[in-house]
């Protein structure tokens, strides 16, 4: 339990550090963004490393938050009195996706722009809220050089402020209720024996994790560098079949499958609606899981959780395979 949360925190630390470093050299705007990213990657010493770590940390952060949340879901750590922790955690996941989405536009290369446009298309298909959502996300209907500046400000000012505020609530709620420990919670065993002291045991483990995470990022940075691509031209519409950001792939694949079975319906709209409904059920778990047996997870919840994870995982894999 500490594990996934700690990794998330370490990644966040990496992100903030590299983000600040990139902030030193990045220039926003249609005619500067691409050039400055190119400058960072090629001219600034170890610029490639900083940029790659920022990129890969973001990817891993979303994965680790998701993993953190899945494990909390099955352990039912959201139950009273920890609802606030659960809700803020869910918000943090959404914010992380928003972070990743806005960050992907900033290098202003055509591939990432197409990707972001494709993600936007999916979001816009959401009933009722779609267009309003897009307004807040990109400051307009489509991404052009003009709202690049808007997206940048959201990425470096508004999102960090929101994120840290919600993170503060998340932590203070954890502090109030104590760290969730399933063994303490469900087995009335010897508490003191199982409880891990913060120093030195926990801190050494945390430090080991830091080294592992950092080394993993180093390895990814060296062997899988982030490409610079060609400069984006916002007048060109994305070619058919452009993939959205990897975190939206499962929505796209779902809508494609729906489209396959019922060609006449708007696959994207139904796909995103289904995803939003499932997400609502998932995120509102503290509200409907009150009556179940205290120590045992209900069959419905078990199967619901497992099927959601399998669905997302499989759809993403299928989409990746289909791309090749």
């Amino acid at each position: 339990m500490y594990f996934s949360g700690t990794v998330t925190l370490l990644l966040l630390f990496n992100l903030i550090l590299t983000g600040l470093l990139l902030f030193l050299y990045y220039k926003e705007g249609n005619s500067f963004a691409y050039e400055s990213v190119e400058f960072i990657s090629y001219k600034v010493r170890f610029g490639w490393l900083v940029r790659a770590i920022h990129y890969w940390s973001a990817v891993l952060l979303i994965l680790s938050i998701a993993f953190h949340m899945f494990s909390m879901f099955f352990l039912r750590a959201y139950r009273k009195p920890r609802e606030i922790t659960w809700f803020t955690g869910a918000l943090l996941l959404l914010l992380a996706v928003w972070f990743s989405y806005s960050g992907s536009v900033l290098p202003w290369n055509s591939k990432s722009l197409f990707m972001a446009q494709s993600s936007t298309e999916i979001l816009k298909a959401a009933p009722l809220i779609g267009n309003t959502l897009a307004d807040y996300l990109i400051g307009g209907n489509v991404i052009t050089g003009q709202n690049l500046s808007f997206i940048y400000k959201v990425h470096i000012l508004i999102l960090p402020a929101l994120f840290s505020f919600i993170l503060y609530i998340h932590f203070s709620s954890i502090k109030r209720n104590g760290l969730f420990n399933p063994e303490i919670e469900y087995n009335s065993g010897d508490e003191c024996k199982k409880k891990l002291p913060i120093y030195p045991n926990f801190s050494i483990r945390a430090f080991l994790l830091l080294i592992i995470v950092t080394d993993l990022l180093f390895i990814l940075a060296v062997f899988s560098p982030v490409e610079i691509g060609i400069k984006a031209d916002d007048m060109i519409t994305a070619p058919q079949g452009t993939m959205p950001g990897w975190y939206f792939l499962f929505v796209l694949q779902l809508s494609k499958i729906i489209h396959l079975f019922a060609a006449e319906v708007n696959g994207k709209q139904i796909g995103i609606t289904i995803c939003i409904c499932i997400g609502m059920v998932w995120f509102l778990a503290p509200l409907w899981d009150r009556i179940s047996n205290k120590s045992k997870i209900s069959t419905f919840q078990k199967y619901f959780g497992i099927s959601v994870i399998i669905l997302i995982f499989c759809l993403t894999i299928i989409a990746c395979v289909a791309d090749y």
Binding site: L21, L24, Y25, K27, S31, F32, E35, S36, F39, K43, V44, R45, F46, G47, L49, V50, T214
Partner: peptide, 19 residues
């Protein structure tokens, strides 16, 4: 870890070709 950090920050002498 610190060497890349230092080099990154000290590259501020470099300038992007005037845009």
């Amino acid at each position: 870890v610190l060497y890349p950090l230092y080099s990154f920050v000290s590259s501020s002498k470099l300038k992007i070709d005037d845009i």
